[in-house]
Design a protein around this nucleic acid. Structure first.
Lengths: 211, 211
DNA sequence: TTTTGTTGATTGACTAGTCAATAAAAAAAC
DNA sequence: GTTTTTTTATTGACTAGTCAATCAACAAAA
């Protein structure tokens, strides 16, 4: 019973099925049939719309990254001070939309994919650069030239928290994860930007009810 | 021309070939034939000695972890103060034997493997617990109850640095990586254990020529 | 009747694991 | 000290299974 205008619906279903299936399996070793089945169609149709497995994967990765980008922009808009913006940048990584068991696992697998597939690496690099320049932009006024090195630390820390999370069986806890990173950031700020301790110390203090 | 007593030689060759082949390919998707070929034998022989692909992988992972454990013990033996021991624990992760392009890539893939294979997860958990209790043991005298949270930060940071490294094309730089983590540690110590700033500040200062 | 949606069946490539066969060393038997 | 047997090392060829990708065919809408 074919209905017209299915393409966007199918594509979306496939992309989401891909992320969940990879997350569930914990590996990129999922078949097109598995993905298609979860998305409620035949594997032939998946090929029809995306061309090949690699392209399905890339679409899924692009979706994850754009989801993340959305979250960042949404939170940055609400932030006023540099401190608030830093908090927003960190918290975006642990927003419920990104920081869920299956999605985290998919993230890890995309990291691995980026080691092989040039396009995946490029996508990840763009995300890295954006995060880095965002962080540095708001760190520099607070800590001067140390901004770059502190940014590198925060970036690595975020990735590390993701990696650890992917190995847990327990569901992700955004608050704990966020606090771990923000606590470190606060320390760095307290040391380097000792001239304005009051503002920096408020990073963690405020309660967060993001969802 | 079969020579007797080949088993240990073959096993070792296969384990090393596995790590390098996974590192080179950037994925666990390497065939037994590829591994066997790199190790200079037929795939049938690989099966003969290890039984199956999974067991080859597990042996490779065990090898990586024991290599790492060796490095930790070697460095801890030379360390006297708590500060020196902390430095040793961090640096061990970036020792040339572990922190090389191919090995780092293999590490990342083993992380992914740990999401699927129970035994891999167990191995990784053991390593985690050991690192954690080592860190806490030497942090507590310096920072008291904050030891646990600081340890968690350092652990995540180390993993993050590995992850970032796996995405570079450039060869790993142990000094830079180590400094990134030690710098953070130093900050934490300076804040919490302000009573003894002189000792903590020496963490980075000393030159290292470990190889 | 052309375009869009859809699938079952098929193909072609690849791969983990097995097995029978061979060859040399070591051990046992004579 | 020689012959036989057993153990260890080794591989080419094969099996059985999987899976990405294709295709022919059909159905409904435009």
């Amino acid at each position: 019973m074919p209905k017209v205008g299915m393409e966007p619906v199918r594509r979306k279903a496939l992309v989401e099925a891909t992320i969940h299936e990879i997350g569930r399996a914990g590996t990129l070793d999922v078949t097109v049939s598995q993905i298609a089945k979860r998305a409620g169609m035949s594997s032939a149709l998946a090929h029809h719309y995306f061309g090949g497995k690699t392209q399905i994967f890339m679409a899924a990765m692009r979706h994850i990254l754009s989801q993340y980008g959305l979250e960042v922009r949404r939170r940055l808009k609400k932030a006023k001070t540099h401190e608030e913006r830093l908090r927003a940048l960190v918290d975006a990584n642990f927003a419920p939309s990104n920081f869920r068991e299956e999605v985290v696992s998919a993230w890890m697998n995309f990291y691995v994919l980026a080691q092989n597939v040039e396009e995946a690496r490029r996508l990840l690099t763009v995300y890295y650069h954006r995060l880095h320049s965002n962080l540095v932009h708001d760190l520099r006024p607070l800590v001067g030239d140390e901004a770059v090195i502190i940014a590198r630390r925060i970036e690595a820390l975020i990735d590390g928290v993701y990696l650890r999370q992917s190995l847990r069986n327990e569901p992700a806890n955004p608050a704990t994860a966020s606090e771990l990173v923000l606590g470190t950031l606060e320390n760095e700020l307290a040391r380097c930007g000792a001239q304005r301790p009051a503002a920096t110390l408020s990073l963690i203090a405020q309660k967060e009810r993001s969802e």
